[in-house]
C-alpha cells in the first residue's frame, strides 16, 4: 500500500461549554496520510493546538473500532461521515481528497445538549433504557440456556436489532431529531425473544413515554436514520415498535 499525503482544511464547531456561544473555526492540517483514521487526523490537529498553546478540540471517542458508540461527529453533512455502515472512528482519510474542506459539527438535537465542542450529552438514551429496556430477571433465577429453544430467524433478527451501539447517529440524521430507531431496536430485540414476552406491553408504553419526555421528535419514516446507522439497524424495527405500541395501548387497562 502506498501512502499519499494531503493537506486539508477542517472547519470545526467550537463551543466552550453548554451555555457558551459557539462558532465555526477553520484550521489547516497538513501532511495527512491517507492511511490515517479520521480521529488520528484530529489527534494531529490537537497535538498541534496543544504545542501552540491553544485549546484542543474536544470530541468523544473510546474504542476506536466501531463498537463502543462513543464517537459522534457530523462530517460533511452526514453523521459519522461519508462511508456507509461506519462509525467516525473507522472512517479513514482515503475518503477525502487533497485540498478539501471538511466540515465537522456536533450531533444537533435539543435532547443532546453540547458539553464542549463536538462532545454531546447522550444520557437521555440511558434514561430511555431505564424506562423498560430490559428483562426483569435477577441473578440466579435463570433456567438452563437450552431449555428455551428460539427460532433461529427470530434469534437472528433480535441480534440484528441488538447490535445498536447507542451512538445517536439516528437522532442526528433525522430531521425531527427522533430517537425512534434507537428505541425500536431495543423494543424489537426484546419483543422478538420469548424471554421478553412478560413485560412486552408495559415495556413499549413506558419507553415511548420516556422518549417523549426526553424531548425527541416523532418519526416520519423518511429513512435517514437507517441510511446513516453504523450498524445498519433496519427501519422495519420502527414499524415493529409501532405495531407493539398499537397493540399494547389498545389492550392496556
Amino acid at each position: 500500500m502506498s501512502q499519499n499525503t494531503m493537506n486539508l482544511k477542517v472547519k470545526v464547531w467550537r463551543q466552550k461549554n453548554a451555555n457558551a456561544q459557539g462558532a465555526f473555526v477553520t484550521y489547516d492540517v497538513a501532511g495527512i496520510s491517507d492511511e490515517m483514521s479520521f480521529l488520528e487526523m484530529m489527534d494531529i490537529l490537537n497535538e498541534r493546538l496543544i504545542t501552540e498553546g491553544g485549546d484542543p478540540v474536544a470530541f468523544d471517542h473510546d474504542c476506536r473500532e466501531g463498537i463502543c458508540g462513543m464517537c459522534s461527529m457530523y462530517i460533511n453533512g452526514k453523521p459519522h461521515g461519508p462511508w456507509q455502515a461506519n462509525t467516525t472512528c473507522q472512517l479513514h482519510m482515503r475518503a477525502f481528497k487533497d485540498g478539501e474542506t471538511i466540515v465537522i459539527e456536533p450531533w444537533r438535537a435539543n435532547s443532546f445538549p453540547i458539553v464542549k465542542d463536538l462532545t454531546v450529552d447522550r444520557s437521555a438514551f440511558d434514561r430511555i433504557i431505564q424506562a423498560g429496556g430490559y428483562i426483569s430477571v435477577n441473578t440466579g433465577n435463570a433456567v438452563d440456556g437450552n431449555s428455551l429453544p428460539i427460532e433461529k430467524q427470530n434469534a437472528d433478527e433480535a441480534f440484528a436489532a441488538a447490535m445498536c451501539i447507542g451512538c445517536g447517529a439516528c437522532v442526528a440524521a433525522c430531521k425531527n431529531s427522533s430517537a425512534m430507531l434507537f428505541l425500536s431496536a431495543k423494543v424489537s430485540h426484546l419483543a422478538l425473544l420469548p424471554q421478553g414476552a412478560p413485560e412486552r406491553k408495559s415495556r413499549v408504553l413506558k419507553m415511548v413515554a420516556q422518549m417523549d419526555k426526553e424531548g425527541f421528535g416523532s418519526c416520519t419514516n423518511t429513512g435517514a436514520c437507517e441510511a446513516t446507522c453504523p450498524k445498519e439497524i433496519s427501519i422495519a424495527n420502527i414499524a415493529r415498535l409501532n405495531n407493539e405500541y398499537l397493540g399494547a395501548s389498545l389492550t392496556a387497562q
Binding site: G77, P79, V103, E105, R108, C225, E226, A227
Partner: peptide
C-alpha cells in the same frame, strides 16, 4: 440549532 450542511442523501 441547525446544521451548516444538511443531510440530504439518506432520504427522499
Amino acid at each position: 440549532v441547525g446544521y451548516e450542511v444538511n443531510y440530504s442523501k439518506g432520504s427522499k
